[in-house]
């Protein structure tokens, strides 16, 4: 890997957003993901090369470290923020087709539930893994999921819930979406959610952490192929 892409990989892995960011201490005063992405583009690296060689592998490593308890939520969020700082300069190439995305992922916290930290982590990780993410926000009811699936019929859907009282709403949403789109596949997660519960409501996968969402989506993709 070229030095500039190695630097970009390092910035995303350790959450160095831009030159002004004081975090992480070992990279203080140096350029961050924002500056290195601009430099990489200026030096002629293609957006696809930047994504495939630096950004996606860096976020994959972040997800692995998180699932192994080597890093925690703050570090993961900062890595995702560094990734987003890089994507500001890469995203214009998405619409041109120059960068092939893996697919579309619709994500939301279910109706009655206002918690968003898990949802945000999942959105950031999945986007960092090469997917287009539609974040419907919190307190999202069946109608909004149905509407979004109508607009993106090939999308996969992620549902998050932190409250035991809102867990049943996951099934309501799955049933409502499947009524109009029987083949839509769902991943569910959240503190009170278990694999058994996921299976009982007809979800296709349960994710204990954001990396498992990415793995489930890649699995869905292979199965579809």
């Amino acid at each position: 890997m070229s030095e500039i892409l190695e630097k970009l990989f390092e910035c995303v892995e350790f959450g160095k957003i831009n030159a002004a960011s004081p975090y992480p201490p070992q990279l203080r005063g140096q350029d961050g993901a924002s500056e290195y992405t601009q430099k990489a583009l200026a030096e002629g690296f293609s957006p696809a090369e930047i994504m495939d060689t630096a950004l996606i592998p860096a976020m994959t490593k972040v997800g692995q470290k998180f699932s192994e308890n080597k890093i925690f939520v703050p570090q993961m969020l900062l890595s995702a923020k560094a990734m987003n700082a890089a994507l500001v300069y890469i995203k214009p190439y998405f619409s041109s087709g120059e960068i092939r995305r893996k697919g579309t992922f619709i994500m939301g916290t279910v109706n009655g539930d206002l918690h968003d930290i898990g949802k945000n982590l999942v959105c950031m990780m999945v986007e960092g893994a090469g997917w287009d993410v539609i974040d419907l926000g919190v307190d999202v009811g069946p109608e909004k999921f149905v509407e979004s699936v109508r607009q993106h019929p090939d999308a996969y859907v992620g549902l998050s819930a932190l409250l035991t009282t809102t867990m049943p709403n996951m099934k309501t949403i799955i049933d409502a979406v499947r009524a109009v789109s029987p083949s839509t596949r769902f991943i569910v997660g959240g503190a009170p959610v278990s694999a058994d519960f996921a299976a009982s409501i007809g979800a296709d996968a349960y994710a204990d952490n954001p990396q498992q969402d990415v793995e489930a989506l890649d699995r869905f993709l292979q199965e579809r192929a």
Binding site: P22, P24, P74
Partner: peptide, 11 residues
């Protein structure tokens, strides 16, 4: 905001 404080402890 829970997500924001997670990053702000460092920033």
């Amino acid at each position: 905001d829970m997500s924001e404080i997670m990053m702000a402890i460092y920033i």
